[in-house]
């Protein structure tokens, strides 16, 4: 027994020694910036004589954040954007996955076409949409006018509500492929025998979907929800290229605000406070994601 304990201790020591370099690298490239960012958020940081000058201000930047009209609007916009995006992407993604899982949709061609929006580089995607949505000579206005659906050109990014929702739809368009493929993988894991049993029991298509399909892919859905929420918090390039946060700050999300305050206004402390808020939300979602991926023991049915 004693020999076993000694062996186990040596095995653990060797394991720790092997893992240590990786932990050191992680601490350097992840932990240090995160801790420094939190530290930065507690200071007023100014550029003087080519040097960064820091003054301790405690929670003042966070207090300012929750009293700043633009920041509050950004929090509201971000919450709306994330919730709407998750609902739309997961809903449409599931629909697309069901179509692809159907016998007629199994052609590789459809999957290749599906992946295109996801494969386009983010900035290229934003520039592409800039041309499509241009109020004067954009493709979308041209197509809708030629179809007789609109009489005059629409300014798709011209009003606060319209601009935010158009950005949302563009991001949904880009995000659907990954979620659809994730759902498709989930659908292909559902044992066919369950569908046959449901059919034998006289279940209709809707009942089969609700009682067989959805429960079987609930982990895939949960993962899609968490990942999509994290990604929706990171939206930046679309806003930068298409609206710069306008009109009248209507499309400012927290991520973009953090960039604007940090790099445009050089208010590094306040920018770090905003970035930390985004980090906190992402961190919580990441924990949920890991928890969802954790293997669970099946509880035997009583």
């Amino acid at each position: 027994m004693r020999a076993f304990q000694t062996y186990e201790r040596r095995r653990r020591s060797a394991g720790a020694a092997f893992v240590a370099p990786a932990l050191a690298v992680l601490a350097l490239i992840l932990a240090y910036p995160i801790l420094d960012s939190i530290w930065l958020a507690l200071q007023r940081v100014t550029l003087k004589a080519g040097q960064v000058e820091r003054t301790w201000v405690g929670a003042e930047n966070f207090h300012r954040l929750f009293n700043d009209e633009t920041a509050l609007r950004a929090i509201f916009n971000t919450a709306y954007f994330s919730i709407a995006e998750v609902v739309l992407v997961v809903g449409i993604g599931l629909g697309v996955a069901l179509l692809l899982n159907n016998a007629m949709g199994r052609s590789g061609f459809f999957r290749v076409v599906l992946v295109i929006p996801w494969a386009i580089a983010p900035v290229a995607n934003a520039v592409l949409w800039k041309w499509i949505l241009n109020a004067n000579y954009g493709v979308l206005n041209g197509v809708l006018t030629s179809l007789g659906l609109i009489e005059h050109n629409q300014v798709w990014l011209g009003t606060p509500t319209m601009a935010l929702n158009v950005l949302l739809l563009v991001d949904v368009w880009k995000s659907i492929p990954f979620v659809a493929l994730l759902m498709l993988a989930g659908l292909q894991q559902v044992p066919k025998v369950l569908y046959r049993a449901a059919y034998m029991d006289g279940a209709g298509s809707f009942q089969t979907f609700v009682h067989i399909t959805l429960p079987s892919i609930k982990t895939a859905i949960a993962i899609a929800v968490v990942l999509q929420t994290i990604w929706s918090l990171r939206v930046f390039d679309l806003i930068f290229v298409l609206t710069r946060g306008g009109p009248a700050d209507a499309t400012v999300l927290l991520n973009f605000l953090a960039y604007r305050v940090t790099f445009n206004f050089l208010d590094l402390g306040y920018g770090a406070a905003i970035a930390n808020l985004v980090f906190a939300a992402t961190f919580i979602l990441a924990i949920i994601y890991i928890w969802l991926l954790k293997p669970r023991r099946r509880v035997a049915a009583s």
């Binding site: 109020a135 004067n136 300014v155 990014l157 011209g158 306008g246």
Partner: peptide, 22 residues
């Protein structure tokens, strides 16, 4: 004023409209 002006984020966006004769 071209209603799209509120959505043109750079001078080139507006310049293109003038250069296109619109």
């Amino acid at each position: 004023t071209d209603p799209g002006s509120i959505s043109y984020v750079g001078i080139n966006d507006a310049t293109n409209v003038l250069l296109a004769g619109r």
